[in-house]
Design a protein around this nucleic acid. Sequence first.
DNA 1: TTATGGTTAGGTAAAACCTAACTAACGAAG
DNA 2: CTTCGTTAGTTAGGTTTTACCTAACCATAA
Lengths: 139, 139
Amino acid sequence: MMDREEQLFEVFENLLRIKNECSCTIFSECGLPDMTVKQVAYLRTIDEQEEVTFSRLAEITRNSKPTITDMINKFVRMECVYRERCPDDGRILYIRLTEKGRKMAKSEHYALRLMIERMVNSLDKYEMDLLTEILQKVR
Amino acid sequence: MMDREEQLFEVFENLLRIKNECSCTIFSECGLPDMTVKQVAYLRTIDEQEEVTFSRLAEITRNSKPTITDMINKFVRMECVYRERCPDDGRILYIRLTEKGRKMAKSEHYALRLMIERMVNSLDKYEMDLLTEILQKVR
DNA sequence: TTATGGTTAGGTAAAACCTAACTAACGAAG
DNA sequence: CTTCGTTAGTTAGGTTTTACCTAACCATAA
């Protein structure tokens, strides 16, 4: 008879598998199956900032400005970002995410959402509430 | 009032955060914080095979033999693997994981275990069983 | 004129892969 | 036992991409 902890492990292993599958699906749908972890992190940073400029991103990520230029050029080629000039100061360019870029930036978020949806489709209201209540105790 | 699905999302987001923290801890403990996703996948493949040779690994991963040689040389430098000559056929070398290599190979597994342990420490038996029962329904 | 924002030029190191050629070991045949 | 063909793994030399750098430059602003 499998013990308690082992059973817990298995059900969570399954959940993680589901979530990872959802992640891969999102990457594939965007046509970017091989995007690196670092690249996704950069997109996420861009997404999280209100109006991010090259200098600001360089500052946040502790990289040089040419590094940011180079990386944004790559993202432009991937159709994940575009440049938008500031109307008030012609020197300034804002880095904007495209729809695809936003999707990639939030891929982990969306994957988790898809997983939750899978869950919602398998459980009734009572079970979901119980789940939430129990898991809220985990720190 | 936050709706049901949103609450579910939040508790799982927290769990994922915990699991990722555990993952990072394992990488750091091994002194390999920057190991790439591909490298970990290679170690995992080596771990999953019974007795893996260079040719076999090349076959499984659909790479050339010199690619495998090069990669194993890197892992040797990281102290994750070592070579062991076959006693019956002097041409054959088995690729063996060190303790560190095994730890890196199973890092996802261990991270999940650490997360489950965190859970076990926060919940009683009844709650754990309930959790297992509910989550077993998710496909 | 000086300062700021971003780009270009030229560079490094590492990862991830390749083909061609080679060495060592093995097994089969004579 | 020797020879030959085959197999296992290595070395040499190469490519492309990622991820970063400094120095110099151009455009814009104050």
